[in-house]
């Protein structure tokens, strides 16, 4: 239903109805800003990027293929912008191509005996603040998936489609990201 509505708005925009595109902007401005804000760190830069995503989407709307979900198409544009941003900052080479599915990711292990409790160390507000800080320390590809999963509530299938990765790889990376966040919280407890 939601997707049908998006497709309808896309068709109307292609027929020249700009109000339909404005409805797309209103619908996706929050999800995109919440993703981009956490990927680039500064709100103003994130706002510029969000604007850029919509302008790119509008300019290439005719190349959008309705067999894909419109929201995943938008996130793909946003993700490419973020990759370009990191490339220009030259931070990337390591973080974007770093092998992430290593054996020592901790996921293949059982829960250790001495795992301290973090949830009892902080109240909810403090925990959220610390999660935001911990996210900044995640490698970019893991951070992106973590945000999509928890902030944008995308499914694993949607993430796999955006990143063009196998479903199993995406799941494993999300679990890795979650475990890294937990360990970072543990270190600050």
């Amino acid at each position: 239903m939601n997707e049908e509505r998006d497709q309808n708005l896309v068709k109307r925009t292609l027929r020249g109805d700009k109000t339909a595109f404005e409805m797309i902007v209103r619908k996706y401005q929050h999800p995109l800003l919440n993703y981009l804000g956490r990927m680039v760190g500064q709100r103003e830069t994130a706002l510029d990027f969000t604007q850029e995503v919509f302008i790119k989407a509008y300019a290439s709307l005719r190349s959008y293929k309705p067999r894909y979900k419109f929201s995943t198409w938008l996130f793909k544009i946003a993700s490419n912008l973020v990759i370009d941003h990191w490339r220009k900052k030259k931070i990337t080479a390591l973080s974007l191509s770093e092998p992430l599915d290593r054996e020592d990711d901790g996921l293949t292990l059982e829960v250790p005996d001495d795992e301290p409790s973090i949830s009892h160390a902080f109240e909810l507000g403090e925990m959220r603040r610390r999660i935001e800080t911990a996210m900044e320390k995640l490698p970019v590809p893991l951070r992106e998936l973590f945000i999509w999963r928890h902030v944008n509530e995308l499914s694993y299938e949607e993430m796999a489609e955006i990143k063009n990765l196998p479903l199993g790889t995406v799941k494993n990376r999300v679990f890795q990201a979650k475990e890294m966040i937990r360990r970072l919280l543990e270190n600050t407890a």
Partner: peptide, 17 residues
């Protein structure tokens, strides 16, 4: 523990537009 962290991560404050 992991359930509580996930719940906190899923309720982070949204950015203002």
């Amino acid at each position: 523990e992991r359930r509580l962290i996930a719940a906190a991560a899923s309720s982070l404050a949204p950015f203002d537009v």
